[in-house]
């Protein structure tokens, strides 16, 4: 099957000598919901910039649904929609005009562009704001405006660079639902995000990039399987004066109503609950201390750092 996005040995060295990408390679399959993660300055935005032609690559190749961007960038661009990290629309134009005009840039007749503009503005909850100048929108609305604009030509591949940065939780959840729906309808989605919970909930496959290199490229499920330990916070019904005997589990009392317990790979939560039950400690709820992917992410970057210094 032809990959939705195929990146091979992609390199970028800026004029000041900074090597942003050191020859990365990865594929994204059609229909996938793919996460591209990495710390600030890792090379995520440079990669996206190259894919959509805003950054010139120094070496390597990029194909979108089998079309090499060096051979037919126009055909490749027709299949690509990009939601950048920073707002990049005219602040003085009206919401409707921004989206419909983008359709014209892709050669869409005005009537079709207007029809699609209405469709996406309604789906993204911006229809009431269609006659408002973009500068008057809230941050979350501006992000949704950029999503509507990127979808106007109904691309097969949609890339979103930090789409939910600065967006409140309720809106973030509604954006997730929207993205999941268009993914279900067949659009391949690549997402960069700082919210690892977002990547874990939405994405099936992942590439982690650090200092211009890919340090991991696998499915999120397989990645989570490599997690050796998880740290849970247990909320208890009755106040505790000291940490109960946890047997083979590491743990501590966070406050009188909650315990922090580390569960190593191979240990069973049943054993923990039995032991607590024997001591009359009733657990009313539990949660991960941190997002599981976050823990992996941190450990993978730490490993990469260690290898780099050895």
């Amino acid at each position: 099957m032809t990959a939705a996005l195929s990146i091979s040995n992609l390199q970028k060295t800026y004029d000041n000598g900074f090597q942003a990408l050191k020859g990365i390679s990865f594929d994204v399959q059609p229909g996938d919901f793919f996460a591209l993660l990495g710390p600030n300055g890792a090379g995520k935005s440079t990669t996206i910039g190259i894919i959509c032609s805003l950054v010139r690559k120094t070496g390597g190749s990029v194909s979108i649904f089998g079309v090499d961007i060096d051979k037919d960038f126009a055909a490749a661009k027709q299949m690509l929609g990009v939601v950048p990290q920073e707002f990049n629309f005219s602040q003085f134009e009206k919401v409707f005009d921004i989206v419909a005009t983008q359709g014209g840039f892709y050669g869409m007749p005005r009537a079709l562009a207007e029809e699609r503009t209405e469709k996406y503005l309604k789906q993204l909850g911006l229809w009431d704001k269609r006659s408002t100048q973009a500068r008057m929108l809230s941050g979350g609305m501006k992000r949704r405006l950029m999503i509507a604009r990127a979808l106007i030509h109904e691309p097969k591949l949609l890339i979103l660079d930090e789409p939910t940065a600065g967006v409140d939780i309720e809106l973030r959840r509604s954006m997730w639902t929207f993205l999941e729906e268009i993914n279900r309808q067949g659009t391949t989605i690549i997402l960069t995000t700082h919210y690892l919970e977002e990547a874990e909930s939405l994405c099936r496959n992942i590439a982690i990039i650090d200092k211009g290199d890919i340090v991991e490229n696998t499915s999120i499920r397989s990645l989570l399987k490599t997690l050796n330990r998880e740290v849970f916070i247990l909320d208890v019904r009755d106040p505790l004066e000291a940490c109960p005997d946890l047997g083979g589990f590491d743990g501590r009392l966070v406050d009188e109503n909650s315990l922090e317990v580390t569960v190593e790979k191979g240990q069973s939560l049943n054993d923990l609950f039995t032991r607590l039950g024997e001591q009359g400690v009733a657990v009313v709820s539990m949660r991960n201390r941190a997002n599981r992917l976050e823990e992996l992410f941190v450990s993978l970057l730490a490993e990469a750092e260690k290898e780099g210094t050895e």
Partner: peptide
């Protein structure tokens, strides 16, 4: 202005 507000990118990413 299109460069300054970066909306020139709307044109540059289009075919």
């Amino acid at each position: 202005s299109a460069k300054f507000q970066r909306n020139v990118e709307e044109l540059l990413v289009a075919p």
